[in-house]
Structure formats: C-alpha cells, structure tokens
Amino acid sequence: MYETNYHRPKTLADAAALLAKSDEVKLLAGGQTLLPTMKQRLAAPTDVIDLRHIDDLKGITESGSGGVRIGAAVTHAEVAGSETVRRLIPALASLAGEIGDPHVRHMGTIGGSIANNDPAADYPGALVGLNATVTTNKREMSADDFFTGLFETALEPDEIVTAVTFPAPEKAAYAKYPNPASRYSMAGVFAARLADGSIRVAVTGAGQGGVFRVSEMEQALSSNWSPDAIAGVKVAAGDMLSDIHGSADYRANLVSVMAKRAVAAAG
C-alpha cells in the first residue's frame, strides 16, 4: 500500500469538503474492496475519508411508503440482521447475509458497495430489482439511473451516497451462484413483483456492463409469475462476462437457472 492520509469527519459537510479537494481523494466506507485494492497498489489515493463516524449515514428506518431506508454506512451484517428489513423485504436481508463472509459483512457497507459498482457485487441486483432510490448529498436518483456501467455510477466526483430507499415489494427473492473462489456473484438474479404490480428481474455478476434487467423475463412473468414462464428465456451469451470460473455461455445458463430459482423462492 502506498502511504495515504486518513481523515475521520464527523459530518457529511466535512466529508464532502475533503472529497472536493482533489480527484485523488477516496471515500473509505467499510473498506472491504478499497483496502485490498490499495494493498495491491492498484489504487493510490492521497487521502481516504472514513465515513463510519457520520451519524447521518447510519440507521435503518421504515420509510414513509412502507419501504426501508438504509443509511449508506450501514453494514451488510446490520441489514441481514435488521428486524425491519427482514419483516418488510426479507429478500434484501437474505441477500445482505450472503455477501462475502461474516467478517466482511461486519465492515462492508451498502453505500460502499453500490458506489464501487463491482459487476460481481450483490447489492446492485437488489437496488435495480426493487427499483430503489439512491440519495446523495446532492440529489435523489433511481437505481436504474445510478448504475451506469462496469465500476461506473452516475455519482459526481464530489458526491456522496447517503442512503438507499427500497420500496417493499409484493414478493421478491434473490438467487445467487457464488464464485467458488472469491464468493462474489457469478450470476445473481433478483426477481420481484413490486407493489404496483410491475415486475423486475435484475442480474448481477454475469453481465459485461454490470447489473442489467432482463425485459423478456419481466414480460413473461407479468402474465405468469412462475419459473416455467421464463424457462425458455435465454440471455445473450455475447453480453456476459467470461473468465476462468465461467465462460459467457455458462454464465448465460446460470442466469436462466438462477432466475427460475429466484421466482420459485419468491413464491
């Protein structure tokens, strides 16, 4: 790791001011991705801003519309264990409980995960699958607008995610096929029927451009919410990631399999 300067602001405004200073400043949320990257000297921020001590970024609350608002600095373990989340969106709690490993879940945060937008991360699937809203220190935006590509988001250089608000769906489930080595997602499918009856099928881990929706599956499920309805739907292998753990063909197959399992699990 290159030497860096550690900062621990107490307020969002202080954090934003530090972040605005230069492009070489990075936000340190749980650090479970950033620190390994820095250790491998693949990232060299001059400064890191610890977000874990800002009260505004903490807490899980029931949102006005019967959904859940999760502060950006809330850990995966907190989401997985939250009575509120388990009651309102059990699929989200179980997704959080499958990220990484128990120690990583104690540190890693939802804000950090979505801001990094690793194509193999789990949370982007839930955000897109549930049509969540991302709140930053500057604005609100839909998950569909937030994720813009591989490790890319709509965040401005001096913008900080403060919370994510998930509407409670009518039914939802996440089915994940983990990478056997890293335990990241090789194909994770979040399938949901939202309160307004709309259907969302979001896939993470498999696509070359990060999280994506499968509109053919969504249409098929709109008329018939059952695994059989999507049995014949295949995603294009050409759009899938390919590596030693799974070729594009294989990932395309996994997407179909995990989608069916998610729909079955959602009931």
Binding site: R8, G31, S182
Partner: peptide, 29 residues
C-alpha cells in the same frame, strides 16, 4: 493472504469479528 480471504487475521473490533488485514489501524482508533 493479501486479498482478505484467508481469515488468519480475524480479531474482534467492538465485539464483532473483522479481518484486521482489511482495516487501517487509524480506523480502529
């Protein structure tokens, strides 16, 4: 390891198991 997987470094910070290779000492101040 260098990639936060092996868990040989696990300690408890404020009562929770974390990987001490994936946390700055300053974060634990």
């Amino acid at each position: 390891c260098d990639t936060s997987q092996c868990g040989a470094c696990v300690v408890h910070v404020d009562g929770k198991a974390v990987k001490s290779c994936t946390m700055l000492a300053a974060q634990a101040d």
